[in-house]
């Protein structure tokens, strides 16, 4: 909040000063539109975006970054209009809430001659974007399944906790199921846990009551996984199974680093991808460096060997 106010003030000052010494150092304005910090991963996203804002504005004094956070797809569409008409941005970095509803609003921005970088979720019409920094949801499901196959020797009973019914969740789960096809790994049960700790705890308690023997849990998300861990501990069944989460929350990375047997690995879906996208865009805007059409953020498998590389103790996520 304080930062936002300070930012608005800086922006006003920028506008007021613009006519005086404008031509020497033309202000370049970059708008960043992301979902609000309503759950852990989005919280990480916001933190990384703010870090990148500070760092980039220091690096490029004539760069002005405006971050807008939205609670839903409709709110994000409104933000885009404000960024263009009120803040007069030159470039947009957007992590769309949902692909289809935001495709046309982003097209509008593009038609006004702005540079567009899309992050994570693709638009339904990829010709709109100048750059696409892609998160890789199917790969996340696949990498998790591959690790599980190897760790279970292609055989065992598992339960799956899903996120919120969305395209992202479907892509992850479909790829996971595809990868374990043909093995003797059996999915005993599958339920939504809404990327939420409390729901992860509840669903896992019920799975533990329902199934006497579980070899592994695919929680898909680190928040869910933390709830699962508590439920498993309460039931005293830590020896029986292991848990794979996902995203790269610091608590989970720490557990992997400390060789917690319950959490032998984690799969990255780093919220820091927004910072990469902002960096690429800013560099292109100011230094006019050429850009690739697409950058893919890998869903890296985090094991005790490489965990320290992905540990950000200062991040809230």
């Amino acid at each position: 909040m304080k930062m936002k106010l300070g930012f608005a003030a800086a922006l006003l000052a920028g506008i007021a000063l613009a006519p005086l010494g404008a031509s020497a150092q033309q202000k370049v304005r970059m708008g960043v539109s992301i979902p609000a910090a309503t759950h852990g991963w989005a919280g990480g996203l916001n933190w990384h975006a703010q870090q990148a804002e500070k760092q980039l504005e220091k690096q490029y004094p004539n760069l002005d970054i405006r971050i807008a956070t939205a609670k839903d797809a409709a709110g994000q569409a409104n933000d885009l209009e404000d960024l263009v008409s009120v803040h007069n941005i030159d470039a947009l970095v957007i992590l769309p809430f949902e692909s289809a509803p935001l495709t046309d609003p982003v097209r509008e921005v593009k038609n006004k001659g702005k540079f567009v970088t899309v992050v994570d979720r693709g638009l339904t019409d990829p010709s709109i974007q100048n750059v696409y920094v892609a998160g890789n949801n199917p790969q996340m499901g696949k990498v998790s399944a591959q690790y599980m196959k190897q760790k279970l020797n292609n055989k065992g009973n598992i339960v799956v906790l899903r996120g919120i019914p969305t395209v992202i969740d479907n892509q992850r789960v479909d790829a996971f199921m595809e990868e374990i096809k043909g093995t003797d790994i059996k999915v005993l049960g599958m339920q939504y846990a809404n990327w939420n700790r409390d729901d992860g705890f509840k669903v896992m308690q019920d799975f533990l009551a329902r199934f006497p023997k579980i070899d592994a849990v695919w929680a898909q998300d680190d928040d869910i996984a933390l709830g699962v861990i508590e439920a498993v501990k309460q039931a005293g069944r830590e020896k029986e199974l292991f848990i794979i989460g996902g995203a790269g929350m610091k608590d989970m990375i720490k557990r992997v680093m400390d060789r917690d047997v319950l959490v032998p690995a984690d799969v990255l879906y780093p919220p820091g991808m927004i910072a990469d996208a902002m960096q690429i865009t800013a560099k292109h805007l100011i230094e006019k460096t050429p850009v690739q059409k697409e950058y893919v953020i890998e869903a890296t498998l985090v094991t005790p060997e490489n965990a320290s590389k992905y540990y950000y103790p200062d991040s809230p996520f």
Binding site: M1, A37, A42, G43, G44, W47, S315, P316, F317
Partner: peptide
Amino acid sequence: VTYLADGGTLS
């Protein structure tokens, strides 16, 4: 609470 937690989690 979102503000206090910096958008993340208070543990």
